[in-house]
């Protein structure tokens, strides 16, 4: 049976069910998870701490969440990665929207602030930072933060190399979704497809697929170029690409090549998967009455690969 755990530093609160339910130990006794009591960052985000139970802690990872729809579609992968890392002796922290996040927002600066606060949590708990991990644009922000946080390693799953490209893709997908939505209702002929760009230009703020985007945040995002921005990073880098053809895109190959030229230890791995929907999009496929989780195995595969790579560099700990 799953077991509720005493919360770190609050043993006297164990009788309070709200405190007791903040954490649990998994059925196999491999790891524990805990929602930290103190929210983080300007929007009071919640953090989940995963700790290995069967092995001594070899190190800790920060798992950086993305923005936009992919923040939702990668959430399970982040959770599975945390559990895999714990099996190999790594603690991890990941962030979720908290009580004061009334409107989802795309804001790189806020996420980087949250990540700095996560390193403070690790320090308080005596957990050495081993790696920063991120998926999609979360990978991009993990790469940006790694240097600042002095992480030994950074693992990027399908990272966005050019921020400008991510912004363009987001706007394009927004337009496609709006057109498809409009097509579903015969009498609705107008479309909000072009609205974000013009709105951003006119008022300095818009909404892209449900997420608030300011001109400042858009400019910050557009300026990201990992090839240049990772120039000062001295740690090891894993770039993990997912591709139906089994070939990483030019941007990721270019990033790894540049890191190697600069004398860094950079690994490029490609996972071949048919990807019935683009990575980062809604992944349930099929028509009613059944919906199939098209990333069920892929997420486990990616989590295991990231864990294996992080573990290769971590110091060995007694089992």
């Amino acid at each position: 049976m799953t077991e509720a755990l005493p919360i770190h530093g609050t043993k006297d609160l164990v009788t309070d069910p709200l405190a007791r339910l903040r954490s649990y130990r998994d059925a196999d006794g491999t790891f524990s998870e805990e929602f930290l009591e103190t929210p983080l960052g300007p929007q009071a985000s919640w953090a989940i701490l995963t700790l290995p139970l069967r092995r001594a802690v070899r190190g800790a990872c920060i798992i950086c969440s993305s923005f936009g729809p992919e923040a939702g579609t990668h959430r399970r992968l982040e959770s599975v990665s945390a559990h895999c890392l714990a099996q190999q002796g790594f603690a991890s922290l990941r962030i979720r929207p908290g009580q004061h996040a009334p409107e989802p927002e795309i804001d790189v600066a806020r996420r980087l602030t949250e990540m700095r606060e996560l390193t403070d949590v690790l320090t308080e708990r005596g957990l050495p930072l081993s790696a920063v991990v991120g998926v999609g644009f979360g990978g991009t922000m993990a790469a940006l933060a790694a240097q600042d946080l002095v992480a030994e390693a950074v693992a990027l799953v399908e990272p966005v190399v050019l921020g400008r490209q991510f912004l363009e893709d987001s706007l394009q997908r927004h337009a496609v979704v709006e057109l498809m939505t409009a097509a579903e209702v015969a009498r609705e002929r107008t479309t909000r497809a072009e609205k974000p760009k013009s709105e951003l230009a006119a008022s300095g703020v818009t909404t892209v697929r449900g997420f608030r985007l300011t001109q400042t945040a858009a400019d910050r995002m557009s300026a990201i170029d990992l090839v240049e921005d990772m120039g000062g990073y001295r740690g090891r880098v894993l770039v993990l690409s997912v591709s139906p053809a089994g070939r990483a895109p030019e941007s990721m190959r270019g990033l790894v090549q540049r890191l190697r030229q600069d004398g860094r230890e950079a690994t490029l791995e490609v996972v071949q998967d048919e990807l019935p929907v683009p990575f980062g999009e809604y992944y349930f496929t099929g028509t009613p009455p059944s919906k199939i989780d098209s990333r069920f195995w892929l997420d486990r595969n990616l989590a295991e690969r990231v864990t294996a790579w992080v573990a290769r560099s971590g110091s060995e700990a007694p089992a």
Partner: peptide, 19 residues
């Protein structure tokens, strides 16, 4: 109001939840 993120025991596992 106050929000609490929790893990609710569910069979041999848990459900993540917010109360």
């Amino acid at each position: 109001m106050t929000e609490y993120p929790l893990f609710l025991p569910f069979n041999d596992s848990v459900l993540s939840a917010v109360v």
